[in-house]
Structures are given as C-alpha cells and as structure tokens.
Design a binder for these strands. Structure first.
Length: 198
DNA sequence: TGATAGATCGGCT
DNA sequence: GCCGATCTATCAG
C-alpha cells in the first residue's frame, strides 16, 4: 500500500520537486529497513542542458523516460550512485534528484553501510544517501508505487516558508536556473556550493 | 575553514 | 581521449 498516487508524479517536475520535501524515502531488503526525510532535491527536465535526458533516450538514461513514479539510478564519476524520482509522463525525460535525507529509521544499518562518521554525514549528499539506503543499480527503473524494496510516502508537513530555493550543485551547464529546493536551516542538507543566493 | 587532488568508469564529443 | 548531477583525505593557513 503506497499512499502516493501516480498522478502525484505525473506533473511538471518543478511542481513535484518542492513537494517531495518532508516525505519519507525508505528502502527495505529482507527485514532491514532504512529511511529518511527528504530535505534537499533538484529538478531536471528534457529541455535542460544539465539533464542527462537533454540529448534524448539512451541505454543509460532509459529509466528517466518512463512514466512518473519510477526510479532512475546512475553511476557518477565511476564510483558513486545517485537516485532520481522520475516525474511527468512516459517519454518526458524529467526527474528529481534526491540530494539529502534526515535519517529516520535504521540508523544502525546506515552507520554500518557508511562507516564511522557523524550522523549528519550519513545522507547529506546524493551519493551518500544511496549508500546509506543501500540503493544501487539493482533498483534501476524500480516502480516506487509497487516495489517492496523502495518507496516514498508523506511524513512531515512542510510550510512554504520553510522551503529555500537556489541554483543546482555540481553542474557546469544551465548554472543559473534555481531548481534546487531544500529545507531552510536544516542541518541535514548537503554541503553543496551553489553559485546563486538564498 | 578552504582549496586541491585522487579514485575510477561509462558514455559521448 | 575527456569529463562528469561526487566524496574523501590531505595540506595550508
């Protein structure tokens, strides 16, 4: 039972992205569950030079072109995995990169997967949260509305005033677009250095 | 605290 | 070949 409907994801990615803040993202393998509250995201779409979908569908980004609610996982810098929630409709090539979580459940397992470090560094980055949740290429294309292994559900109510907006982190194209959303003042957001203000 | 280099590999110019 | 939606260790101040 997943309380979120397909229609939630089947909207413009810039609308969906900020609404993902405050939701609980979980993964479960056997009886081991880990989860966290989403505190930072970035939106990407097909007419966006910085997006993997910009040049159209390829073997690598195929999952990003599925209908909203699926998972797009990719390997970055040859060693880290990052996860996106696909948005809009099949063929759109839009998604929201999950950039940071506030750890909620399974802290012990997260610490095990991430190694000894302060709790605030367990999931304060896109590759870190994938490691903390055990998300890798096996979950490529997973349907968040049907998967027993990974899912998203409403958890915390977020007021508009708590949402901060900025440019995105780590990209070299479309650097001025303010498509990063995060919880203002949260100690769990990444250490990214966006070029914009706010 | 801030800057820098290295790890490591698939996809595309 | 080149470079990336990153992270970590290390070094300088």
């Amino acid at each position: 039972m997943n309380p979120i409907q397909r229609s939630f994801f089947a909207r413009p990615t810039l609308e969906v992205a900020p609404e993902l803040l405050g939701m609980r993202l979980w993964s479960r393998f056997g009886r081991k569950e880990t989860s966290g509250i989403i505190v930072e995201v970035e939106a990407y779409h097909q007419l966006d030079e910085a997006s993997h979908s910009y040049r159209g569908p390829t073997k690598r980004n195929e999952a990003m072109f599925r209908e909203g609610g699926h998972l797009y996982v990719y390997l970055i810098y040859g060693m880290h995995y990052c996860m996106n929630v696909v948005t809009e409709t099949a063929g759109s090539g839009a998604a929201v990169l999950i950039r940071a979580l506030e750890p909620l459940d399974g802290l012990e397992l997260m610490r095990e997967r991430r190694g000894a470090r302060p709790d605030r560094e367990l999931a304060n980055g896109p590759a870190k949260l994938c490691e903390a949740l055990g998300v890798g290429p096996e979950l490529q294309g997973e349907d968040l509305l049907a998967s027993p292994r990974v899912g998203i559900e409403p958890c915390r109510r977020i007021a508009d005033s708590e949402i901060a907006i900025s440019t995105r982190v780590g990209i070299t194209k479309a650097v001025d677009a303010e498509w990063r959303f995060y919880l203002r003042g949260s100690e769990w957001v990444s250490k990214g250095r966006p070029s914009g203000r706010s």
